[in-house]
Computed example of a mutant assay.
Amino acid sequence: MTEQSKDILRRAASFCAYQERTQREVRERLNEWDVYGDEAEEIIVWLIEQNYLNEERFAKTFAGSKFRVKRWGKHKIKQHLKQRGITGYNLDQAMKEIEPDDYRQTLVDLLEKKKRSLQGENPLIMKQKLVRYAIGKGYESDMVWSVLGGQE
């Protein structure tokens, strides 16, 4: 292994150690460093073997943090994971990070907070704005309507 290859391995490991990454993000970074093809794939395999790169771990961390910190709904989380190249099993595992009771309660809390900011609005317009807000955050419309139906 050449000194340049060792340096690229160190940089790639550091890139992955800083925060969870997807294979797509690592491949893009390697391209920026002018590393392509088989050499790039060998580096990615090494990163996976050394546990620097784990897409299941990335997906779980991403879903859990976007739900807890930004209070995103499942639709928005799935959409962002798919944009990052996460599909299938890893996507399913990520969604399991969100407890159904916590999910529903977070939606209730979001809607109550938003409702307070809309005081004085016509009730029909308020409901419309609440639905649009929750769906924009990535929550399922049937759940939003169900929660709003119980708040009146």
Results as ranks from 00 to 15, higher is better:
Thr2Met: 05
Thr2Glu: 03
Thr2Ser: 04
Ser5Arg: 00
Lys6Ala: 15
Lys6Ile: 15
Lys6Tyr: 06
Asp7Ser: 09
Arg10Lys: 14
Ala12Phe: 00
Ala12Pro: 00
Ala13Gln: 07
Ala13Leu: 02
Ser14Gln: 14
Ser14Asn: 07
Phe15Val: 01
Cys16Leu: 02
Tyr18Gln: 02
Gln19Asp: 01
Glu20Trp: 05
Thr22Tyr: 00
Thr22Glu: 00
Gln23Ser: 14
Arg24Gly: 06
Glu25Pro: 02
Val26Asp: 01
Val26Trp: 00
Val26Gln: 00
Glu28Cys: 07
Leu30Ser: 01
Leu30Glu: 02
Asn31Cys: 12
Trp33Cys: 00
Val35Tyr: 00
Val35Asp: 00
Glu41Asp: 13
Glu42Gly: 10
Glu42Asp: 09
Ile43Glu: 02
Ile44Tyr: 01
Val45Leu: 13
Val45His: 04
Glu49Asn: 09
Glu49Pro: 05
Gln50His: 15
Asn51Ile: 11
Tyr52Met: 01
Leu53Thr: 01
Asn54Asp: 07
Arg57Ile: 14
Lys60Val: 09
Lys60Asp: 05
Lys60Met: 10
Phe62Lys: 07
Ser65Leu: 12
Phe67Ser: 06
Arg68Thr: 15
Arg68Phe: 09
Lys70Thr: 13
Arg71Asp: 10
Arg71Ile: 10
Gly73Leu: 04
Gly73Gln: 02
Thr87Phe: 13
Gly88Ile: 02
Gly88Thr: 10
Gly88Gln: 09
Tyr89Leu: 07
Tyr89Arg: 03
Asn90Thr: 12
Asn90Met: 02
Leu91Ala: 04
Leu91Ile: 04
Lys96Ala: 12
Lys96Glu: 13
Glu97Met: 12
Asp101Lys: 08
Asp102Leu: 13
Asp102Phe: 04
Gln105Tyr: 11
Gln105Pro: 12
Thr106Val: 09
Leu111Phe: 03
Glu112Trp: 05
Lys113Thr: 12
Lys113Leu: 15
Lys114Glu: 11
Lys115Tyr: 12
Arg116His: 14
Ser117Leu: 12
Leu118Asp: 06
Leu118Glu: 04
Leu118Tyr: 10
Gly120Leu: 13
Gly120Tyr: 07
Gln128Trp: 11
Gln128Leu: 14
Gln128Thr: 14
Gln128Lys: 13
Lys129Asp: 10
Leu130Trp: 07
Val131Ala: 06
Arg132Glu: 13
Arg132Gln: 06
Ala134Tyr: 04
Ala134Ser: 03
Ile135Arg: 06
Gly138Asn: 05
Gly138Trp: 12
Tyr139Phe: 05
Glu140Ser: 10
Glu140Pro: 12
Asp142Gly: 10
Met143Asp: 09
Val144Pro: 05
Trp145Met: 09
Leu148Ile: 11
Gly149Ser: 06
Gly150His: 12
Gln151Arg: 11
Glu152His: 05
Glu152Cys: 07
